[in-house]
Design a protein around this nucleic acid. Structure first.
Length: 381
DNA sequence: AATACGGGGGG
DNA sequence: CCCCCAGTATT
């Protein structure tokens, strides 16, 4: 079987399979480029099942380019809460504002224009152009690289940028005339439903017959992928500062810096514990006044005077590149140092919130869990 | 080319 | 516990 025939067989059979087996996903019910765009950004590094509820809420709240362009950034971040990679949300809104102003609200349909938008890389550009506009552009993600590396037995490391370029050239050649949107989705659908990372279901695969990896018995070994570095550990000490007087029943939260990890999200005030405190990192921080002092000093630098009362809980959280091991300590405000009413002298990036008021602030999941547990423990008593 | 950037699901 | 996932921007 010659090369061209093998490619033609692949494209034809795969497309035919997709048209019979495609899942009914929310963003597949419309060709609105704006909705396709939102779904593709949400789907970056994120599973379909995770995205679905977020997608529904997002398009309901921001049904048009104009609606998203005119929304406050905090609202956008709040709807993205828990989805991760929050720069996606800020980049998306920034790019949508550009589309609103420069393109009169119409998502551009050329590769150059769409690729210039913030947060739109090679994959997302190809996905929008092919799915929304049916342009013959490749949309190569992890699924596509897995499928192609197996079917064509490609042993290049898919972590290398060079390999993605190679895959894009191949994927482009495979697109049958006039079917770019369906074909690209077919590739991803096969990767998600059949040609899975582990235990691919080859017996139901529409192109099993000519799959090179299958013929070589290598379907479980491909794609070749260099291992990622393990996340570096960090110890942290967080304060649950309970309000009194006017702020009774509330806790003090803090907004993170404009840039960097979890940018502009809200959190519990906390500080990193240097590894030199090695002996002082027990599962319970009860007997470690030196750690309390560290927290008190750190917050004092931000004009927040606190008195540690008692250990509350332990929390761990893993990002792609950092592992947080965090102790949470119940504190009260130090009387006389700061006014506890009217927010006087409270830095603007600090706020008092109760369970209800939290709805106006976006938190990363790790703090959401701690805060929910805290308010639950309060209401029980 | 390497690193920063979240979070959850599944074997 | 480890691996994986509908990636992009920065350095």
């Amino acid at each position: 079987m010659d090369k061209t025939h093998k490619q033609q067989y692949f494209s034809t059979e795969l497309l035919s399979w997709y048209l019979r087996h495609r899942r009914d996903l929310p963003w597949r019910r419309s060709k609105n480029p704006y909705y396709i765009w939102i779904s593709e950004v949400m789907l970056q590094q994120t599973r379909v099942d995770t995205v679905i509820p977020y997608f529904h809420r997002f398009v309901e709240r921001f049904p048009t380019v104009q609606a998203l362009a005119e929304a406050p950034e905090e609202d956008v971040l709040k709807l993205w809460e828990g989805l991760g990679y929050y720069s996606r949300a800020r980049n998306l809104q920034g790019a949508v504002r550009e589309v609103h102003e420069r393109y009169e609200g119409t998502v551009p349909n050329t590769k150059a224009e769409i690729s210039s938008l913030r947060g739109v890389g090679p994959y997302t550009a190809g996905a929008i152009l092919s799915i929304a506009y049916n342009k013959p552009e490749p949309a190569v993600d992890g699924n596509v690289m897995r499928v192609l590396s197996r079917y064509f037995l490609i042993e290049e490391d898919i972590m290398k940028p060079k390999t993605r370029i190679l895959m894009e050239k191949l994927a482009q050649k495979l697109i049958p005339e006039g079917t770019a949107g369906d074909f690209n989705q077919a590739l991803m659908e096969l990767g998600a439903m059949v040609c899975k990372p582990r235990s691919p279901i080859c017996l139901t695969c529409p192109v099993m017959e000519h799959c090179a990896a299958r013929e070589a018995g290598m379907e479980e070994e491909l794609p070749i992928k260099k291992k990622a570095k393990p996340p570096r550990p960090e110890w942290r000490m967080a304060a649950l500062i309970a309000g009194s007087g006017d702020h009774a029943g509330k806790v003090l939260i803090r907004q993170r810096p404009q840039e960097g990890l979890l940018a502009r999200m809200w959190e519990l005030p906390h500080t990193e514990v240097p590894f030199s405190y090695k002996e002082a990192q027990p599962s319970s921080a009860e007997a470690v006044p030196v750690l309390f002092d560290l927290l008190v000093e750190q917050l004092a630098e931000e004009t927040i005077g606190v008195v540690p009362e008692r250990w509350f809980m332990h929390a761990e959280h893993t990002f792609s590149h950092i592992h947080w091991d965090m102790q949470i300590v119940l504190c009260s405000m130090e009387p006389g140092v700061l006014p506890t009413d009217a927010g006087m002298l409270l830095p603007t990036h600090y706020q008092w919130v109760d369970s209800k008021a939290m709805e106006a602030y976006a938190f990363p999941n790790v703090f959401l869990k701690i805060l929910n547990q805290y308010f639950a423990s309060c209401s029980k008593k």
